[in-house]
């Protein structure tokens, strides 16, 4: 089921987007990697809701392609480079591209030969660093599902070492690089993306504090602020993240959007609007809530159902939280105009 959220040209505007939604204020992420490393599949699975088994049909990208995803909270750009082309060729405006870039993701196929991709990675990272030293460098050791637990750790360690040493040799800087083991067949790709994006959200501490306050006042055990299109969480409270709770929250977003695209699609094709919400009760006396925060974001939270918490109060607390979020983003966007 395709989500209709890709259509960004609609007139449905509300919440903080109304006056303050400038694409420049959203995190910009660039994705690179060798041929067949899984870039296109990642993009399709994370941002276009393709089911992982369908990625078999994804054809390899033959020319340089640039793709921008703008219907998500994250300003996400993938630039695919076939082997022989270099992204730092002058005709491609590397300076323009990498000055805007906040995080550079390099995808390595963990099941394929590693030496060549590592060499490319080091070269690109060094050159990007020279253009913009503020870029966050991230490596996805991808297709990890095909490896044993031991092999995963080993592969990641090998790559880490080689990259560290070679970069030091080349530019004499101890570049900070973060590594993630990922696979499109489970939630690890979403989890990794979440970490990358959180690294870029400057208001993260404020958002965390807001979520903590919300949790305490409503007896909530865990809450996530999700980018609804990609199921990346841009913030969560200060409690540790339990993977299975995060996965269930992701699945709840799927249920909400999938049912909405069957029964609640308006003339403009949107299935997610200012009244979007969901409540799921589990027999273990837990309740999950999903509430729309703005066009791109939703708050998903889980709490014990002990009968003392009145829905009306949760509604009220959520209203206060939503106002808080609006203020957080408003301040940031105003700042850009000075």
């Amino acid at each position: 089921m395709d989500s209709d959220l890709d259509d960004d040209g609609d007139d449905l505007r509300y919440g903080i987007d109304e006056e303050y939604d400038y694409p420049d204020s959203r995190p910009t992420v660039i994705l690179m990697g060798h041929k067949r490393s899984g870039k296109t599949s990642i993009r399709k699975v994370v941002f276009q809701k393709m089911s992982p088994n369908e990625t078999m049909f994804v054809e390899s990208t033959a020319r340089i392609t640039r793709d921008t995803i703008c219907s998500s909270f994250i300003n996400f750009e993938t630039i695919e480079f076939p082997g022989q082309m270099c992204p730092f060729d002058d005709s491609l405006d590397p300076i323009g591209i990498f000055q805007k870039c906040e995080a550079l993701l390099f995808i390595i196929d963990a099941q394929a030969e590693l030496q060549e991709p590592i060499a490319t990675l080091v070269e690109y990272f060094c050159r990007a660093y020279k253009i913009n030293p503020n870029i966050k460098f991230e490596v996805f050791v991808h297709k990890a599902d095909g490896l044993t637990e031991e092999a995963r750790v080993e592969t990641k360690f090998n790559i880490y070492h080689q990259v560290k040493e070679t970069i030091k040799d080349q530019i004499e800087v101890d570049l900070q690089v973060t590594y993630h083991l990922t696979s499109i067949y489970d939630h690890s790709i979403f989890e990794a993306f979440s970490k990358v994006v959180q690294n870029l959200v400057k208001q993260l501490p404020t958002l965390e504090r807001l979520l903590d306050v919300f949790n305490q006042s409503s007896k909530v055990t865990k809450s996530f602020l999700f980018d609804i299109l990609s199921k990346i969480y841009i913030a969560t409270d200060s409690e540790p993240v339990e993977m299975n709770i995060y996965e269930l929250c992701c699945d709840m977003i799927d249920v909400t959007l999938d049912l909405s695209s069957i029964y609640g699609v308006g003339e403009n094709g949107a299935n997610y609007d200012e009244n979007s919400q969901a409540i799921i009760r589990l027999k273990s006396e837990q309740v999950m809530y999903l509430r729309q925060v703005n066009k791109h974001l939703a708050l998903v939270f889980i709490m014990k159902e002990d009968g003392n918490e009145k829905v009306g109060f949760i509604d009220h607390n959520f209203g206060v939280f939503k106002q808080g979020i609006e203020q957080v983003f408003r301040v940031k966007n105003r700042g850009l105009h000075f």
Binding site: N244, Y263, R281, K283
Partner: peptide, 20 residues
């Protein structure tokens, strides 16, 4: 199935937007 994985069971679901 996701609920089962968490050792829990589904009781009820309620989904709405402006239209349904």
């Amino acid at each position: 199935l996701s609920c089962l994985k968490m050792g829990s069971k589904l009781d009820s679901i309620q989904v709405r937007n402006s239209r349904f």
